[in-house]
Simulated assay, not measured.
Amino acid sequence: MATHSIGTIQTEGETKWLVLERQLSGSKEATWRAITDPALLDRFIGRWEGDPSSGEVSFFMTAEGSTEASTYRVLECSPTEKLIVESDFMGTVWHLQLTVQDNGGASSLRFAQRIDDGITLSDVGPGWEYYLDRLVAVESGESVDSIVWDDYYPSAAYQALQG
């Protein structure tokens, strides 16, 4: 099932982003629910707890078996369209943007991570590919069991992209 697509580096002003895109068969609203509803999110990556209107939530990477939470700050949320969050991860700020667009009854998801000092593409790129492919699988009614981490990491393509 793995698509093994490779993200691209896009520059906006002085900022570089790793951008990955996926097409999903569900509507824009269904895709939004899949990436924001804790129960649906838990099917492929993890769940969050807390009150997003407070400006932050606790996120648990349950797909990796983690019981430790990371705090994610909600910077922008435009329901069914855009979610921007950031978190401190091992001394580095992770700034993530998820944008959902209608695609004629289906939807497209654009996932972007800001590439700051301390972000290694060969580490984060394969991980996001893995989780986004798991999202596509669950939204297509398929099992995530066929999506195997070892098929993603290490990735020579991401090592080359890092330069």
Score class of each variant (00 low, 15 high):
Asp37Glu: 14
Val148Lys: 12
Glu64Thr: 03
Ala2Lys: 08
Gly65Glu: 02
Phe111Tyr: 13
Gly105Asp: 07
Thr3Ala: 08
Glu21Pro: 10
Glu68Pro: 00
Leu40Ser: 10
Ser53Gln: 13
Gly127Lys: 05
Thr99Pro: 08
Gly26Asp: 13
Gln113Arg: 07
Ser53Cys: 05
Gly55Ser: 12
Ile35Cys: 00
Ile115Leu: 13
Arg33Lys: 15
Gln10Pro: 06
Ser66Glu: 11
Ser58His: 13
Thr62Lys: 04
Glu76Ile: 02
Gln10Lys: 14
Gly65Met: 03
Asp151Pro: 05
Val93Gln: 05
Arg33Trp: 09
Ile147Leu: 03
Asp145Cys: 03
Val124Ser: 09
Tyr72Met: 07
Ser122Phe: 00
Gln23Thr: 15
Gly163His: 09
Glu86Cys: 13
Thr99Lys: 15
Leu161Tyr: 04
Val93Ser: 07
Tyr72Gly: 01
Leu96His: 12
Thr71Tyr: 02
Thr99Arg: 14
Arg110Val: 14
Arg22Tyr: 09
Ser155Asp: 00
Asp102Cys: 03
Asp102Ala: 14
Ile115Ala: 03
Leu75Glu: 06
Glu64Val: 03
Ser58Glu: 11
Gly104Arg: 13
Arg73Cys: 01
Asp42Cys: 04
Lys16Val: 02
Leu98Asn: 11
Gln10Arg: 13
Ser146Gln: 11
Ser155Gln: 01
Tyr153Asn: 04
Ser54Val: 10
